Computed example of a mutant assay.
Amino acid sequence: MKKLYAAAFALAFFSQVNAQVLNQSAGWPNAAWTITGSYNNDPLAFEANPTTTPNFAFDDDDAGNNAHEDNIAAESPVIDLTAAFNAGEKSLVITVDYGYYYLENDVLQFQYWDAQASAWVAWPGANIAGNSTSVYDDFCTIPKVTMTTAALSIAAFTPGQLSGFRYRISYDDDPLAGDWNYGFCFNSPTITSIACGAPVNLAAGNITNNTADISWDAIGGIAGFEYVFNQDAADPTEAGTATTDLTYPATGLDAFERVLFPSQGKLWKLFQFLGDT
């Protein structure tokens, strides 16, 4: 009988990342951070100030009705990225524990400071997703989940953009008007430089009994990838094969074959092909 193959995606991530040049916690409470925006600063609304507490929390529900506009941001001090860039670590990720009740129209996102354009720019990827619908007050009581942002490529940054870099957590209850929503709470985030990001939208198509076409999306600022193709679930120890393609035609598959794709040899994503005869 013909073997039937199913591709199981995102089964595991492996990392072989050496000590990063930049691996910096916000270290809240941290007086070097600043709070900006137009918001209700009553303690019932501004529940936690990261310059004086270990959290950043805002309660839009207690800030006022839908005629009241609230936007608030917690902004980092300047972080010079030059050393990380010179070491070849040309992508940044942020990891943070948070809780957030999204209602409607509100926008919660990481942003970075473009020193050349003198403007805040949204971090790549989607806005931060809500993860609670049961807490209506005291938002630091939401059980927090951990998120890691998409990678921000700094490969094309100018010296001024590198030396003047900052990032922030930005909340707007409605970018188009005033609104009346719920709230959020963050622990201290950590920003890290890495040599590259993992492949994006890794997928398999044209699957037969012993072949599959593996594909992934380009990443801004990344010129190429490396891949390892074997039957070992452990992290590969051999060097990867370099490619500038965005596809790989896997052949010679059997009932239990794994394809490991390291992106620039740093972050690897596992594919597993399961067969049934």
Rank of each mutant, 00 (worst) to 15 (best):
Y5R: 06
L22I: 15
L22Q: 04
L22V: 12
A26V: 08
A26E: 08
A31Q: 09
S38D: 10
N40L: 06
N40K: 07
N40I: 01
N41H: 08
E47W: 01
E47N: 03
N49Q: 12
T51E: 13
N55R: 04
N55G: 01
F56S: 06
A57H: 04
F58N: 00
G64C: 12
G64V: 08
N65S: 14
E69Q: 07
N71G: 06
I72Q: 02
A73V: 02
A74H: 04
E75D: 08
P77W: 04
I79F: 11
N86L: 10
N86E: 09
G88D: 04
G88T: 05
G88E: 02
G88Q: 05
L92Q: 04
L92R: 04
T95P: 08
Y100E: 07
Y100S: 11
L103Y: 13
E104C: 07
F110L: 13
Y112I: 02
W113A: 00
Q116G: 15
A119G: 04
W120D: 05
A122D: 13
W123K: 02
G125A: 03
G125P: 01
G125D: 01
G125F: 01
S132I: 04
V135R: 12
I142L: 03
T146Q: 13
M147P: 03
A150W: 06
L152R: 00
D174E: 10
D174F: 11
L176N: 15
L176H: 10
A177D: 09
D179G: 05
C185V: 06
N187Y: 04
S188W: 00
S188E: 03
P189R: 05
I194F: 00
G197W: 01
A203Y: 01
A203I: 04
N210Q: 14
A212E: 06
I214H: 00
I214G: 01
S215A: 13
S215T: 11
D217Y: 07
G220D: 11
G224M: 07
F229R: 03
F229M: 07
A234T: 09
D235L: 13
D235Y: 15
D235H: 13
P236Y: 05
G240S: 14
G240R: 12
T241G: 11
T243R: 11
Y248A: 00
P249Q: 15
L253D: 02
L253A: 08
F256R: 11
E257H: 12
V259D: 03
F261K: 04
F261T: 03
P262C: 10
P262A: 14
Q264T: 07
L267Y: 15
K269E: 12
F273R: 00
D276L: 13
